[in-house]
Design a binder for these strands. Structure first.
Lengths: 335, 335
DNA sequence: TTGAAAGCGGTACCAA
DNA sequence: TTGGTACCGCTTTCAA
């Protein structure tokens, strides 16, 4: 059995309720008494019983993160950042890689104070499952949401990327990504691209829209190979829809003896530091993970304290980080 | 406030201790009463209070996993498997990506029954930090360990790979991996390779030992490029020390216009299904993740029940999974 | 400024 | 078979 406040009380010659107050730094205890008690507690290596505390106090200063797909880079990067920020705010983070339903159940048992969800493509409506437990997600914001969704502004990011390339003189810009309409988040990048191109009056034919039908690097790789083998003229610039996809794009281009950025410019979505470690360090666009993580955690904490108001914060701002994978457009080959 | 056994007791017209027994399926309760109580509990959507239960019962049927490095493929694959097996054994899994020290603290608070550690390169001795909490790790077994380390038999895996290539007629086999002696696990693969080559009387010069000095795909990629640029004759086969490294190896070879396996054979360490999704599906070697996960979880559960005996299980068996990235050795180019 | 005591929601023992 | 009750370890009134 481990040390309890009663042990401390006995040693200190006070009642255990006094010990409780002292340990919680209550102003109701004389500072001498307080110091004495704290000293004894430290000597004994006292650790409060968490279960007992929560049986009474209800909150655990813990945030749960549900992350069902462990195998892509950008989320890994984000979850690492979230962990940092959670700690900075005196919370702990616990992760579950189970289904949303199971994870929520587990987290409710353990009485976490709130949950961050990484993936909402599940049948059951999260709000119903959460039942009172504060939940925050990210992706595409919608008005009807019953819990805050941090809008990472995919469309804004795409617009930034397209404008940047346009300023470099590019007109033939291709989008390489997964645009099955099932996946909200991916589809949003696609829509953002279309909109941005349209606003600038740039051409969008099927040759500019390369569907990877998947999110692994290999999907990006094969998509680009297909593009290169088609009869259509090669675009002067490519926007890759994610870190992993972009890594496949770069690989395919280099195998086909394209030099980046001399022969073709490439921008990758996902503003994570790992973009710099690719074969060709990639200029990337997107809300920096740090900002996403910040917003997620702070919104959740506000929810926990009942202080969250929709639209209290402005939209998240996508940033373009230059890394020399883009150059002035050259004469367009072919047409 | 949520439903408690007292609410149920009132409705059922029995005492709450009877409710407790009924809900725990005690044989001391008449089955009619039991059924009635269970029915009411279900109707009310009763969920036992976990904190209260643990304040009394001490164990949580939960296993914690400490996983400080979220960004490599093989561990991701393993953790996913562990989750499955943990569930199959009626436990839950919680993940922490914090430092070992912090994670252990968190897990102790939440009273998990045991912990699986993914990474022991930390200063503090884990056993001391765990203080009674059962811990299991994996990697290289050592006799002095104060907690079980599942030996994944790196040396055996290397031997299997080398023998396999040797039977195909290869004599010039290179090892591409990180062999800084600091990292026990990586170094063990290196030692296994050396030993296996020696046993077969195969030559090992510095041209056969390519140090990646890192574990990312890019490290494998650059290492192979360096190898190809050196004056030394190219080996007829390569063993890559991990999934990520092997992925870099394949990329570098293909860029240099080597056809796998016609021009060169490649085997990758890490027996994970993802090996099949590489550009060239790779023949791989290693204890299958399934077995590693199985052993980890079962050993831990034995420890939890105080039933673990060192050496109760034989060594884990590396398996070679063929995927056509190896062929009969051709005449050696050069020397 | 301190202490006593009533819970929090269960489990488990003992008595009826 | 059931009910009564003493904890588990802590927080939080309320009284002293």
């Amino acid at each position: 059995m481990s040390i309890t406040i009663k042990d401390i009380a006995t040693l200190a010659g006070v009642s255990y309720s006094t010990v409780s107050k002292a340990l919680n730094n209550s102003p109701l205890v004389k500072s001498e008494t307080k110091e004495k008690i704290i000293k004894i507690a430290e000597e004994l290596g006292y650790e409060p019983n968490f279960a007992a505390q929560r049986l009474v106090s209800k909150h655990s200063k813990t945030i749960g993160v549900i992350w069902p797909t462990v195998e892509r880079m950008a989320p890994s990067s984000l979850v690492t950042k979230i962990n940092e920020i959670v700690k900075k705010n005196n919370y702990q983070m616990l992760l579950s890689i189970d289904t949303i339903k199971n994870s929520l159940e587990t987290f409710k048992k353990f009485q976490v104070d709130g949950v961050i969800v990484f993936d909402e493509q599940e049948d059951e409506p999260i709000a119903a499952l959460a039942k009172g437990l504060p939940v925050v997600s990210y992706g595409v914001g919608q008005d009807e949401d019953e819990y805050p969704i941090i809008d990472v502004n995919y469309q804004g990011a795409m617009k930034t990327a397209v404008n940047y390339l346009h300023q470099l003189g590019h007109k033939h810009i291709a989008f390489v990504g997964d645009f099955s309409p099932i996946d909200n988040r991916q589809f949003e990048k696609y829509k953002g691209f279309l909109k941005a191109m349209e606003e600038l009056g740039l051409p969008v034919t099927r040759n500019h829209l390369i569907n990877t039908a998947g999110l692994e690097w290999l999907d990006g790789y094969s998509a680009v190979n297909r593009m290169l083998q088609s009869a259509a003229p090669v675009p002067t610039a490519i926007i890759g829809a994610s870190y992993d996809i972009s890594s496949g794009i770069v690989r395919a281009l280099r195998e086909a003896d394209f030099t980046i950025p001399k022969d073709i410019s490439v921008i990758g979505y996902d503003n994570i530091p790992q973009m710099a470690n690719l074969e060709v360090p990639l200029t990337s666009v997107g809300v920096p993970v740090q900002s996403i993580a910040d917003r997620l955690v702070h919104t959740l904490i506000d929810c926990i304290h009942g202080q969250y108001k929709p639209e209290q914060d402005g939209p998240l701002k996508p940033v373009l980080t230059e890394r020399n994978s883009c150059a002035q457009a050259r004469k367009i080959q072919g047409v």
